[in-house]
Design a protein around this nucleic acid. Structure first.
Length: 275
DNA sequence: CACGAGACCTGTTCGC
DNA sequence: TGCGAACAGGTCTCGT
């Protein structure tokens, strides 16, 4: 589920807390409950359990789709994959059947990693770069300019959508925001990137930034039962709307499969690449 | 190197 | 109503 805007929203909420939920930084992890040990990517679950005990969470941030928790010793990294969410709940609150990994804090609250599909991953590492090092640039960073995108595209020939989904190319874009960005840019998902003009690259850059910013402004997208609290699903232009009219030209939004992912686009605004 | 298929999991929705 | 198929925000691995 969660892509950059959803993960960023979760990070902000944990970092700042809300009226009735305490902020996470400063909390001490008293112990962890592992109901699905395969959640733990590294180190081995038994080692993880021992090492995480007594650690203070210093901060909450995000890199790509990873939540990053610097600790007084080491760094905790959590990837939510398809169905994960992270919730602060009072220890006494009934536990969701999908709360497979639960960090019990010293303030009476739990940090609960719920994950119906169990694809999520937790890492406890000394050097976060060991995990984050392969990620491409942050698309919303000031340094990620249209020129920076153009430079990253040099020598690449792949179709636009699969490239946007490649985390080592750009960090944080997933299926929703790839489709939305390409529609905003007027670029067909199968367009080989080496066929893009300078203007199209600029449009792609704008589309990426705008899709992510719009997502963020709406606290991300909430679809089905996974991840609550976002409203960007009400602003989708093409994602999940096959058969409905394109918001720009009114043509019928199409759905195809690209790289085994459902892909939505407007055949009018995003013309088929010449083959 | 690029690409596709299959795995990993469970839940919901759709078609017959 | 029941039941199987298709589909779901992600990524990894293997084979061509």
């Amino acid at each position: 589920m969660p892509e950059l805007p959803e993960v960023e929203t979760i990070a902000r909420r944990l970092r700042e807390g809300t009226r009735d939920v305490p902020a996470l930084p400063g909390a001490v992890i008293r112990r962890v409950r592992l109901r699905w040990p395969r959640h733990i990517a590294q180190p081995a679950p038994s080692t993880f359990r021992k090492k995480i005990r007594g650690r203070t969470i210093l901060e909450v941030s995000r890199r790509g789709k990873y939540l990053v928790f610097p600790l007084d010793e080491g760094t905790l990294l959590i990837h939510l994959r398809m169905s994960g969410d992270l919730l602060m709940e009072p220890r006494s609150a009934p536990r969701d059947r999908y709360a497979h990994t639960v960090f019990e804090l010293n303030n009476g609250w739990d940090l609960r990693f719920t994950d119906a599909r169990k694809f999520g991953k937790v890492h406890l590492v000394g050097d976060p770069e060991a995990v984050l090092g392969t990620l491409g640039p942050e698309p919303l960073a000031p340094s990620f300019t249209a020129k920076a995108l153009a430079e990253r595209l040099v020598g690449r020939k792949r179709a636009a959508k699969p490239l946007l989904l490649e985390q080592s190319f750009l960090a944080g874009i997933g299926n929703i925001y790839a489709d939305e960005a390409l529609h905003l840019a007027g670029i067909h998902p199968l367009r080989p990137v080496d066929s893009l003009s300078a203007d199209e690259i600029k449009a792609l850059w704008k589309g990426i930034r705008r899709a992510l910013r719009d997502g963020l402004r709406n606290n991300g997208a909430s679809i089905d039962w996974v991840y609550r609290g976002g409203s960007f699903q009400n602003h989708f232009r093409v994602y999940g709307r096959p058969g409905e009219p394109c918001p720009k030209c009114g043509a019928e939004v199409q759905r195809i499969v690209v790289g085994q992912r459902g892909t939505h686009f407007c055949p009018q605004c995003q013309p088929e690449p010449a083959s």
